[in-house]
Amino acid sequence: MNDQPTPVNCQEAADRLYEYLDGELTPEIELAVRAHIAKCAPCFKRFDFEETFLRFLAARIRSQGAPPELKRRILESLFSDSDLPERE
């Protein structure tokens, strides 16, 4: 039995950098990339840096929501819109 993933080199790992961090790879390729960065210090550092960057981005820009006033206005417009004939 051989369930070792087909090895990838530094370039192949780098080409899949964001797909790996975004969870977009197939399980086999993900495993191969993980195995590579586990034993390649330079690649590990690069992946770690990019992961830090993505976490930083997400933390800084996800918090904003729609203003309550806008929600109220939209709800109102839906109510009045339902009076308009839409078919025929």
């Binding site: 996800r62 904003q64 929501g65 729609a66 203003p67 806008l70 929600k71 206005r73 939209i74 709800l75 417009s77 839906l78 819109d81």
Partner: peptide
């Protein structure tokens, strides 16, 4: 409607302007 926050956030980054983002979000929902 639960996705209004997402619509507004994306509208804000597409337009780069809060007032325009509100109009854009409202127009989208309507």
């Amino acid at each position: 409607l639960p996705h209004l926050d997402a619509v507004y956030r994306v509208a804000l980054r597409l337009s780069g302007d809060p007032a325009q983002a509100e109009d854009l979000a409202q127009e989208t929902m309507l």
